[in-house]
Amino acid sequence: MERVWSIPENANIVIENWGENAIIYSSLSGETHLLNELAYEVLMLFQAGSETFTTLIDKLYTIFEVEDKADLELQIQKLMTDFENLGLIESTECEN
């Protein structure tokens, strides 16, 4: 079993992207956030569909062409905790 992460059904996220920084509004929390490039890409992937940690890392690895995969994993782990606390994503347990 692996956790599957996705944007909550009742969260409407509006995004305005200005190059290296994006500003987003989440209707669920009513909060506005500033995202850097990495956070923005992660959010865009979730907008496209749900992800497990593994599938997410694989995609980001391709997008950013990073050398240090361990460092990326660490960053994403932290980012996902933040996203979850902000109500931008939620997880469900799923058998696959």
């Binding site: 994006a22 500003i23 506005t32 500033l34």
Partner: peptide, 26 residues
């Protein structure tokens, strides 16, 4: 000023940005 920075400055300067919800953001 960079757009994203101006956004943050302007929204935090409003009296009722939070109250205005999505309309405020837009």
């Amino acid at each position: 000023l960079a757009k994203h920075y101006a956004f943050l400055k302007l929204s935090s300067n409003a009296f009722n940005y939070e109250v205005m919800g999505l309309t405020g953001f837009e």
